[in-house]
Computed example of a mutant assay.
Amino acid sequence: MAKTPAPPADPGAPAATQATTLYDRMRADLLAGRLLPPGRKLQIEFLGHHYGAGQTPVREALNRLTADGLVEQRDQRGFAVAAVSPADLVEITNTRCWLEEIALRKSMASGSAQWEEDLVLAFHRLSKTPRSLRDDRFEANPEWEQRHRAFHRALIGGCGSRWLIGFCEQLADQLYRYRQLSVQKIFPDRPIQAEHETLMEAITAGDADRAVELLTEHYQKTARIVLDDPEAFEG
């Protein structure tokens, strides 16, 4: 965790708003790996100091994050950052592939002009955004991360099921967390833009089988990179 305390929540905001804001900030830090390494204990007093919040809203946020699978509640020992493991990564990746196959096929079968327009726009925006803020070494570009997520959300956005999309989003959150473990090794050698372009070509051609195959390989490749990193699960 960073040594410098985060800016405190707005004391004039309603209690519900403060709690939601705290949850959002903690969630973003957990997903990006900025809070603590996986498996480490989360001390409520320290979190309160770090975020400028009281113990009650911190506990509320931790309970919500436990429901999200980002925090673990341990009997008599408080809270901890959710652990990571190779087996868990494989299971989450496989489940995402299964669910997004259904969602992508349904999106393509829908024939929705709005879905196609949204997908093309999301792809165009992603294509124009650099993965790294520097060419000589990796420096994460927050805008790319946002547009990358928007593109993958757009891929399945025409399936017609908010529940299916919601489940896929939860899995995407978990896999983003794993991806951060080896992001330095994913960049710059992986031609991720080419993977997105090939996937879009299959979708444009109306080849659902090929599109599903490419999307599945896209996710499985990320998992293999993390699994092959000997430092990914240390901590």
Score class of each variant (00 low, 15 high):
61 A>T: 05
110 S>Q: 06
180 Q>W: 14
223 A>T: 04
73 Q>N: 15
59 R>L: 13
45 E>Q: 10
69 G>F: 10
150 A>E: 08
192 I>L: 13
212 V>S: 03
170 Q>W: 07
201 E>L: 12
149 R>C: 04
76 Q>V: 08
18 Q>F: 07
102 I>W: 05
211 A>S: 09
103 A>Y: 02
97 C>P: 00
166 G>M: 11
226 V>L: 03
235 G>M: 08
226 V>Y: 03
84 V>W: 03
133 L>P: 01
146 Q>G: 07
233 F>A: 09
35 L>R: 04
63 N>D: 13
10 D>F: 15
212 V>D: 01
198 T>D: 09
205 A>E: 08
104 L>W: 02
63 N>W: 15
189 D>A: 15
203 I>V: 10
127 S>E: 15
183 V>Q: 08
166 G>H: 12
134 R>Q: 09
133 L>A: 03
82 A>P: 02
228 D>N: 10
140 A>P: 04
59 R>H: 04
235 G>C: 07
13 A>L: 14
71 V>A: 05
10 D>Y: 14
74 R>C: 06
49 H>W: 09
7 P>R: 10
75 D>K: 15
145 E>D: 12
107 S>E: 02
123 F>D: 00
19 A>I: 11
128 K>T: 08
229 D>K: 11
188 P>A: 11
162 R>A: 06
199 L>R: 08
137 R>P: 00
177 R>N: 04
4 T>K: 13
146 Q>H: 11
9 A>W: 11
158 G>W: 02
98 W>R: 13
62 L>I: 12
188 P>Y: 12
209 D>I: 15
135 D>K: 13
148 H>D: 10
8 P>M: 11
75 D>C: 08
90 V>P: 00
171 L>T: 03
141 N>K: 12
168 C>E: 02
171 L>I: 05
41 K>E: 03
151 F>V: 02
225 I>T: 06
50 H>M: 12
100 E>Q: 13
148 H>V: 01
211 A>D: 02
131 R>I: 12
99 L>K: 06
181 L>P: 01
58 V>W: 02
59 R>C: 03
91 E>G: 02
172 A>D: 09
64 R>G: 03
108 M>K: 05
1 M>I: 09
77 R>P: 00
151 F>K: 05
29 D>V: 11
88 D>H: 10
97 C>F: 01
